[in-house]
C-alpha cells in the first residue's frame, strides 16, 4: 500500500470535504462559544475605562473583530475565486459564494457600531472620513457580488462571472482605498492591532480583544463550513432530482 503525501487540494473533493468537516464542526462550535463568550464577558465587565474615551471604549470588542473579518472575508473571496477560475474546484467557488453574506453582515455591523461609537467621541455619526468611505465602498462591492447570485440562475457561466466580478471588485476596492487615503488620514485612528508597532493599545484591552477576535473568526469558520455543507447537499439534491429517478 502506497501512502502518498496529502496536499491541500484533497479538500477540493466534496466528499472528502464533507467527511472531514463533519468531524470538525462540533469542535468549531465549542471553540466559538468558549472564545466568544469569554472575550465578550471579559471585555464588557472586567476591563477598566479608557482615560480619554470613558467606558465607550468597550465597543471595541465588537467593532474591531467585525471590521477585521469584513476586510479579510473579501480577501478570502478573492483568493477562492481565483482558485475556481484556475483550478475549477467547486468547493472553492461555493466557499466564496457562502462567505459573501457573512462578510456583508460583518461590514454592516462594523459600520453600525462605528457610527454609534463615533457619536460620543467625534460628535457625529458619520463623516466622510477615508476609513469610513472605504468601508462603504466595500459594502457596495459585497452588495454587487451577492446580487449577481441572487438574480441569476445557477450555472457555471454565472460562477465564472461572479468570480470575475469579485476580482474586479478587489482591484477597484484597493484603488478606491488608495484614492481616499491619498490626501489625508482622517479622523479615525490608525490600526490598533499590528505586530510590529510599538503604539499598540494597552495589554488590559489587548487580550480580551484578541479573544473576541478569535471568537468572531471561529464563528465565521463554523458558519462557513455549515453553509458550504448545505450548498453541496443542495446541489447533490438538485442533480438527483434532475436525473429523473424519482
Amino acid at each position: 500500500m502506497i501512502k502518498y503525501r496529502k496536499n491541500i487540494w484533497e479538500f477540493a473533493n466534496p466528499n472528502n470535504f464533507l467527511r472531514i468537516t463533519n468531524k470538525i464542526t462540533p469542535f468549531f462550535i465549542i471553540l466559538t462559544i468558549i472564545t466568544l463568550s469569554t472575550g465578550i464577558i471579559w471585555g464588557l465587565f472586567f476591563t477598566p475605562e479608557d482615560y480619554r474615551q470613558g467606558s465607550s471604549v468597550k465597543i471595541i470588542y465588537v467593532h474591531v473583530p467585525a471590521a477585521f473579518l469584513a476586510i479579510n472575508i473579501y480577501f478570502m473571496m478573492f483568493v477562492t475565486s481565483v482558485i475556481w477560475l484556475i483550478r475549477r474546484h467547486h468547493v472553492s467557488l461555493i466557499a466564496a459564494k457562502s462567505a459573501a453574506p457573512i462578510g456583508f453582515i460583518m461590514t454592516l455591523s462594523a459600520i453600525l457600531t462605528g457610527a454609534i461609537w463615533g457619536k460620543p467621541i467625534w460628535g457625529t455619526y458619520w463623516a466622510w472620513d477615508p476609513r469610513l468611505t472605504s468601508f462603504s465602498i466595500l459594502l457596495m462591492f459585497y452588495i454587487g457580488y451577492i446580487s449577481i447570485w441572487q438574480t441569476m440562475k445557477f450555472s457555471d457561466k454565472i460562477a465564472d462571472l461572479s468570480s470575475w466580478l469579485c476580482i474586479i471588485g478587489s482591484i477597484f476596492a484597493l484603488m478606491s482605498r488608495y484614492a481616499v487615503f491619498f490626501w489625508d488620514q482622517g479622523l479615525h485612528q490608525g490600526a490598533s492591532l499590528s505586530l510590529d508597532k510599538k503604539e499598540n493599545i494597552d495589554d488590559v484591552f489587548y487580550f480580551p480583544l484578541l479573544l473576541s477576535m478569535a471568537g468572531f473568526v471561529f464563528l465565521f469558520l463554523t458558519l462557513l463550513v455549515i453553509k458550504i455543507k448545505t450548498e453541496i447537499q443542495k446541489r447533490r439534491l438538485n442533480i438527483l432530482l434532475s436525473t429523473g429517478n424519482t
Binding site: I59, P101, P120
Partner: peptide, 21 residues
C-alpha cells in the same frame, strides 16, 4: 457609566445581525 446606552445598542445590533445569520 456614561455611555452604557451606546454600548448596549452596539452589542445588541451586532449580535442580532449575527443571530439572523
Amino acid at each position: 457609566g456614561k455611555y452604557s446606552f451606546e454600548i448596549l445598542i452596539s452589542y445588541l445590533s451586532t449580535f442580532s445581525l449575527i443571530l439572523i445569520l
